[in-house]
Design a binder for these strands. Sequence first.
DNA 1: CTGAAAGCGCTAACAA
DNA 2: TTGTTAGCGCTTTCAG
Lengths: 336, 336
Amino acid sequence: MNISEFAKIAGVSRSAVSRYFNDGYLSEDKKKQIEEAIEKTGYAPSLAARNTSNRVTKLVGVIIPKLSSESCARVTEGISAVLDKEGYKLLLVNTANDHRREVESLELFRKNRVDGVILLGTVFTDLHKAVLNKMHVPVIIVGQQLKGFSCICHNDTGAAKALTKLMIEKGGKRPAMIAVTQDDLSAGKARVDGFKSALDESGIKFGEKSVEISDFTIDSGYMAAKRLFSRPLKPDCILCATDTIAAGAALYCREANIKIPDDVMLCGIGCAKIGRTAYPSITTARLHYKTAGMEAANMLLSTVKHRDSIQRVMELDYDIVERESTGGTSDIGIWE
Amino acid sequence: MNISEFAKIAGVSRSAVSRYFNDGYLSEDKKKQIEEAIEKTGYAPSLAARNTSNRVTKLVGVIIPKLSSESCARVTEGISAVLDKEGYKLLLVNTANDHRREVESLELFRKNRVDGVILLGTVFTDLHKAVLNKMHVPVIIVGQQLKGFSCICHNDTGAAKALTKLMIEKGGKRPAMIAVTQDDLSAGKARVDGFKSALDESGIKFGEKSVEISDFTIDSGYMAAKRLFSRPLKPDCILCATDTIAAGAALYCREANIKIPDDVMLCGIGCAKIGRTAYPSITTARLHYKTAGMEAANMLLSTVKHRDSIQRVMELDYDIVERESTGGTSDIGIWE
DNA sequence: CTGAAAGCGCTAACAA
DNA sequence: TTGTTAGCGCTTTCAG
């Protein structure tokens, strides 16, 4: 069913139909006729065809490293909430942590003529930057700060520092960290920086051996904790780059009969569900993922609307959520 | 930049350009010229325009109730993995558990002329069925079985039954269940059916009071457990409709000093990360979410390719994962 | 307010 | 293999 065919059925001209769907001027009579015909035929104009003339797709490309990561999912939810309200649709690519696919997807979005792109970044190579610079639609980066681009990011360093300080204030003398790849500037490097900075300010010497590198999984956190405790000098407090890693570390401690928080304190970052039901519950810094997604979408839409290319950077702050793993109380009450 | 402009720059005809991007016949010379021009201009054909003539969008609409639910995210990952490989893109709508939005999205996809739709179903109203019947592209439903449509679903009843039987065999005399809304035929009704069926076969009388209804959240699970234990006859084993609910219930038990598994056994369903690090770790039935997503995508693509409309139903079975909450050992080893 | 007609950027049928 | 020409389904002038 196309517009001509439908126009014939409705007994009006093609233009009238087009106007009906584009809030143009139209007499009540014709509106009625068209509405009745829609009822009958279920006709709806093809958006693709519409876009060829329009140059507007109402499509936003979103690139995600790993959908089943709680933080990514939350960001995406935020993006989706805002976009939907504005009538934009979300073209989603899950790269499964394959950096090449990020670049491919960017190219794809150029072809698809999306109105804008939101990129949940992890690791940025020169290739990324090259492709990003070639994009002629607005791009917003979430979770990372990349010079020259609009970004929504979290205060990773601040969160890591605050948590480390918390543990030191509670008597931690030998802090260790389970970090993630330093190629990831936010979850990786920035959080280690915060850790170091806290040590620095507390007059504790930072030794490279006090950092273990882990993946973003429970198992990897478990293994990293094991390595940490197999060293001659055992840590008495551990900052983990994510709550999932912390949950894995807690699992190891339970198995190895290392008491938390008495023998070792533990912190995660992100405020994932898993940290709340882990045993003991894990102190963390809440990062505002959903808000980040919403702000990214807002920023994108306003860039699209005003056709400007002003670079904006927004940093979202954290909240400390103290739980049992640093001697806090278990926070049972309602929470979301 | 459009095809004519680009053709001029490349020094070839528009058709040559079109052929280049549609693996038609083309001499090496022209290919070279075109490639060089692409290098210079970054030209890429507009897919939207392409689709108006093509009638193929290479777009699949995916409707999800809640992206930040681990099970939904896993299904979507599976879908994405298969679709990407075949060059299809994923138009994602997160309905945030708003059933009306499912219907709206279906309409949206009709307008957008997607090649097919995958619907992660929860609750189906008559309106759903009406709209679904009007879709003229293939639709695959995941997680629910709806008469007349192709579905990928899980053996919810079997999983619930097996877990309940497990607890009864381990000495459970007063089984209770924390279920979710019975409007949800799979996570809700089917799992209660399995529970009942196990009771039946074990000669235990099923009383309505032994089922509490909860949301899909930790807090809601916590509250439901509290209600269960405020009754005169306390349960000695509880089947929870999801692992998240079970984790919430475990939280309550810990707080109320009810020992798991000694005072009460606990099971969840789904094999979510949260159940593994909860304390104690929670026995569950693994449902193959990612596989479900992959199979749904495969089923959709083969329907699209063969232009058939044969209805197919695939049921994926479960695996029991026994953990501490029913007296099993904690399963630490590598797992994904 | 309305319809005819000329686009939008691309593909596909056709003759060369 | 090529270029020409007619579509694809919709929007947007432009007279009326």
